[in-house]
């Protein structure tokens, strides 16, 4: 469900907030997308694109939970010998 791909905004066509569009670079290919749902998005931001619409501006910071995973892992790794990954 819901293929959404991250891309970087390289230009913005300003207008009414709902009508904003921009060009987004997906690793070397460029597509015009609608930015009406991400009024905070700026050039250089990464956005998640679904069906031609940006649905989220991607945040660089990792969630606390994720950092916690790696802290946990040290606790769990080596608990059972012989496991192959």
């Amino acid at each position: 469900m819901c293929l959404a791909i991250p891309g970087k905004i390289i230009s913005i066509q300003e207008g009414e907030p709902m009508d904003r569009t921009g060009k987004v670079d997906f690793g070397g290919i460029v597509k015009e997308v609608h930015l009406g749902y991400v009024p905070e998005a700026r050039i250089g931001d990464y956005v998640n694109i679904h069906a031609g619409f940006a649905i989220a501006v991607l945040q660089e910071a990792e969630a606390v939970e994720i950092l916690q995973i790696y802290a946990d892992m040290n606790k769990y790794s080596g608990m059972r010998d012989g496991l192959q990954c």
Partner: peptide, 9 residues
């Protein structure tokens, strides 16, 4: 692989 290992543990 690290996370997979952690899950299995």
């Amino acid at each position: 692989k690290q996370v997979i290992h952690a899950i299995r543990s």
